[in-house]
Amino acid sequence: MPEGDTVWRQARDLDAALAGQLLTGSDFRVPQLATADFTGRMVQSVRSRGKHLMMRLAAGSADGPAAVIHSHLAMEGHWDIYPVGNLSGRASGARPARWRRPAHTARAVLTTELAVAVGFSLGTLEVLSDGEARTAVEHLGPDLLGPDWDAREALRRLRAAPERPIGLALLDQRNLAGIGNIYRNELCLLGGVHPETPVADVAELPRIVDLARRLLEANKDRPVRSTTGGPARGDASLWVYGQAGKPCKRCGSLIRHATMGDPAFPRHAARDIFWCPRCQPAAGR
């Protein structure tokens, strides 16, 4: 699942390409929006809230109030932006000549005079009113990349369930919004805690929350993230994530791997965890 910095970057790029532009075509390829058409509407802004994208459209002169196109990337979603020249003379809203992803995975195609934005494999795609848009994200904790980031509130939410494993608490977007599985694993290493350690036993919890903010801020403008301070490529960029069987960059012990499910979300598949047995001893050891 894309991390919060990836979603922030998607919102930034979509906003730069679409904000202030009139839609010359809109094509939604999900059944519930098959008849929706926002041609002629102006895109006012595109913003991220945690891992959610909110594209706000101005009210039309005769076709309804302001609306918000809400999307969530889920595991494999992505918005691509193409110059309008790629339409090769076809009608507005037609598929560009060379999409970088399979056409059958497209869920939304939004066209202006300057650009075509295509949402592929989106986990969520819906059109909401302003009030509904606020409700859709009101359950989220403080946004690590938001202008109203509140570390104290994030800590309060994390500590509200002291028995919960830190590896699950960090992934729960109701506590703080923006951490995905990569950052979850990296933060546990940096905090010196095994992912199964109860929140109550994490002495460095304020430091971990501060590191979460700093890491996402440092990486939000990078196409390839680095949590180690090393080059943003290959094994040098990450401490433990995806490094099973390789030596820890701190102590040389071999990185271990397992999966961890969340009883609070039984429908969600168990996620990978990686840890160093020496730098992150299991709880109680």
Rank of each mutant, 00 (worst) to 15 (best):
G4S: 12
D5G: 08
D5W: 10
T6N: 12
T6M: 08
V7A: 01
A11H: 09
A11Y: 08
L14F: 10
L14K: 07
D15Q: 03
L18K: 05
A19W: 05
L23Y: 06
G25W: 05
G25L: 09
D27F: 07
R29Y: 03
R29G: 00
P31S: 14
Q32G: 12
T35V: 12
D37H: 01
F38L: 07
G40L: 00
R49L: 12
R49Y: 10
H52A: 15
R56G: 12
A59R: 08
G60Q: 07
G60S: 12
S61V: 07
G64R: 09
P65M: 02
A66L: 04
V68K: 09
H70E: 13
S71A: 13
S71K: 02
A74S: 15
M75L: 15
H78M: 14
P83K: 10
G85I: 11
N86D: 15
S88G: 15
G89D: 07
G89H: 08
R90V: 07
R95T: 15
R95P: 10
A97N: 12
W99F: 06
H104I: 10
T105P: 00
L110V: 11
E113V: 14
S121I: 07
G123P: 04
V127Y: 04
L128F: 04
D130F: 11
A133I: 00
T135W: 03
A136P: 08
V137T: 15
H139M: 13
L140T: 06
G141R: 05
P142M: 11
G146H: 07
W149Q: 00
D150C: 09
R152V: 14
P162H: 05
E163T: 14
E163F: 02
E163Q: 13
P165Y: 03
I166K: 11
L168H: 02
A169R: 00
A169T: 02
L171M: 15
D172G: 04
Q173V: 10
R174K: 14
L176H: 03
A177E: 06
G180I: 05
N181S: 11
Y183K: 00
R184Y: 02
N185K: 01
N185H: 00
E186N: 06
E186Q: 09
L187K: 01
G192A: 00
G192Y: 00
T197H: 02
T197L: 01
A200G: 09
E204F: 04
P206T: 11
P206F: 08
R207C: 07
I208H: 05
L211M: 13
E217G: 12
A218D: 13
N219K: 10
K220Y: 08
D221T: 13
V224Q: 13
R225M: 14
R225N: 08
T228E: 13
G229S: 11
P231N: 06
R233S: 12
A236P: 04
A236I: 05
G242S: 11
G242E: 10
Q243F: 10
G245W: 07
C248W: 03
K249L: 14
S253W: 04
I255D: 00
H257K: 04
M260D: 01
M260W: 00
A264N: 13
P266Y: 07
R267Q: 14
H268E: 13
D272L: 03
I273S: 00
F274W: 13
C276Y: 01
C276Q: 01
Q280N: 07
G284Y: 02
